[in-house]
């Protein structure tokens, strides 16, 4: 019993050792901004780009891509020449097998600051680039909101508990 008590007391003393020193306040520096850095292209692998995601995205998976919902939107900085020449809207994405198996085909359409961009229909699983011209009239000096909508997607509970659309790796505005 005495030996047991000794072991218990030793354990308690071991725990009390750190009490002999007063703890130093931990500190974590923040990264203060260097200037406007809104990007014309959102790479889904970049966690910092999430500030430009407005709605309809899930967390990054495999450090590379994100699932979307049936509709999703982002904010992009237009290329410098966009006000004069317009720009090209590009979405790099994958149409996954479960989506095509369920919906057969779907149409992805976009809207840039209220200007409707023609949709495109996809009927096979695979990797795609949705690339459409956006007229100069859609742009102003500031950032633009780009909204995407799919006509068919996977509702919650059909394949996953989440509503699922496509698997996006990047969205951007390229200069013409």
């Amino acid at each position: 019993m005495r030996r047991l008590a000794l072991v218990v007391v030793c354990a308690a003393l071991m725990a009390a050792v750190p009490g002999c020193r007063r703890h130093k306040k931990a500190r974590i520096e923040t990264i203060e901004e260097s200037g406007p850095q809104l990007s014309p292209v959102i790479n889904m692998a970049d966690p910092h780009a999430s500030v430009q995601l407005l709605k309809g995205f899930y967390d990054i998976e495999q450090n590379a891509w994100r699932w979307t919902k049936g509709s999703f939107s982002v904010t992009l900085r237009p290329p410098l020449s966009a006000v004069q020449k317009g720009a090209t809207l590009e979405v790099k994405f994958a149409a996954p097998d479960p989506l095509i198996a369920k919906v057969k085909s779907f149409t992805l359409a976009a809207n840039v600051n209220g200007t409707a961009i023609p949709g495109e229909t996809f009927s096979k699983a695979g990797e795609y680039k949705y690339s459409k011209d956006v007229p100069a009239s859609a742009f102003g000096p500031d950032a633009v909101t780009v909204e995407f909508a799919m006509d068919k997607f996977l509702p919650p509970g059909s394949v996953d508990q989440r509503e699922l659309g496509i698997v996006v790796s990047s969205i951007g505005l390229e200069p013409k």
Binding site: I28, E29, T30, I31, E32, E33, G35, P36, Q37, L38, P47, H48, S50, V51, Q52, L54, T75, R77, N113, D142, A143, V144, T145
Partner: peptide
């Protein structure tokens, strides 16, 4: 506004203002 996505907090006030300004 700070971004917590990358671990250390990063001040994104300017970018965020653009984003929010462009949103409904």
């Amino acid at each position: 506004v700070y971004d917590a996505a990358g671990g250390r907090l990063r001040n994104i006030t300017t970018q965020y203002s653009f984003v929010l300004g462009a949103s409904k």
